[in-house]
Design a protein around this nucleic acid. Sequence first.
DNA 1: CGCCGAAGCTGCCCGAGATCAGCCCCGCGC
DNA 2: GCGCGGGGCTGATCTCGGGCAGCTTCGGCG
Lengths: 249, 249
Amino acid sequence: MSPTPASSAAPSALTRKLAVFTTLTRAEEARLERLQAQRRRHPARTELLHEAQGDHAAFVLQDGWAMSYKLLADGGRQVVDFQVPGDFLGLRSLLLRTSDHNVAAVTDIVVAEVPPRELRELVETEPRLAMALLWAASRDEAMVVEHLVGIGRRSPMVRTAHQVLELHQRLRLVGLADDGSFACPLNQYVLADALGLTAIHLNRTLRQLRERGLMTFRKGRVEIHDAPAMMALAGFEDAYLDQRAPRPS
Amino acid sequence: MSPTPASSAAPSALTRKLAVFTTLTRAEEARLERLQAQRRRHPARTELLHEAQGDHAAFVLQDGWAMSYKLLADGGRQVVDFQVPGDFLGLRSLLLRTSDHNVAAVTDIVVAEVPPRELRELVETEPRLAMALLWAASRDEAMVVEHLVGIGRRSPMVRTAHQVLELHQRLRLVGLADDGSFACPLNQYVLADALGLTAIHLNRTLRQLRERGLMTFRKGRVEIHDAPAMMALAGFEDAYLDQRAPRPS
DNA sequence: CGCCGAAGCTGCCCGAGATCAGCCCCGCGC
DNA sequence: GCGCGGGGCTGATCTCGGGCAGCTTCGGCG
């Protein structure tokens, strides 16, 4: 992606994201990179964190897509959110000490493991980074809230458009989308489970969006043809993503 | 409602709640109480925080019930969550610096205002409390996730039972419910907006729950007649509420 | 080249839950 | 005592989205 000046290499997606919240010092950036030193790969379509499992690790997603979801007794699945590079995986499980949801890799992914004690240490020694983490967690919650509103009150069309626009914005933030399109490795089943629809109905909905000339989603790529119309349809307000320029704090 | 405790006597609901996460020292307890010194009343049915408003205060609810919700263009309302004593109001707005949702008092309430700089100071000087706050925020998010799953995948009956059980557990934690019942100042319209149902359908659902001998909700009071059956019906797993005994950390 | 499985796509029917319309109950003010 | 209004409650219809069944497309592989 676009090269950015940093200590030695390009900053991680997490650093890039947190920089939106606050201007980071060199030392803080370095600390963040150190936190993400322990890299590890994980294959597509496999679970990274399992509900009710004992060890409570958290990860920072470096590359690829993941999703968090819950399984129900009746076999249903609700995808809570997708994660893209720079996002935390299982931060909540770490704090609640019993993972209440599953996280699976959508594509092959690269993650950085963050051991609990490292995180605690970071919070103790770097209050500004602690605030930034709190911000990231709040942003995640805001996204979940937005999904809740979508499933609770928005029509399938509106909901779908909203989800796509959100993903677009999030990916732009970490440099993984251009103005009108982005690579989207989700299949219709997964996306449907996120939107609280059946794959069948999602398919029909996507067709409608296509026929209206708003967007297409084919072969792993989303193309947004008429962004203003999409925004209007979805009633999209991106305030909850807080994609502003950093401020001195 | 029990009158608010004097600062020297009983601990605040927040203290009580955080004590579940970690054992608090005297000094930390005192610090928490100090954080909540600035008390203020707010009348029922009025907004405390408005979407997109400029000032970003956060509050700790001391007494009464509140709810956070979003309004949609079409006039619809989605209640995201209810807040009971010990819960934060608008913590997310403070961090994102633009409130993305509304918070209204359900009953007459007493809140403690937490100015942004106070919070930042707390995080900087009391890392253990910072972790506890992160825990509380994570718990809130876990509840929102649970609601998302409910609205997305659970039937109205199951969803309703689940919500009631959750409220019961939360209220027990802060000493506002006994084993089989609790005071619930919500009306059916508000509850329906939380569950993503119409008030009409919620009414029918409540009737069913009543006829099955599981629970009743009348005149501001919820009575749970058959807790095990309710739990079974709702598939209620309270892990996400993390109501465990404190551990030494 | 042809088989096979996964994902995408579509038509048809049906049921859960929304919508509409209206009644009852109870507390309150005059 | 009586009218009024808000919340609770109910029956009758409508409709959106789910369920089912099946077809197409495409890529991998023997």
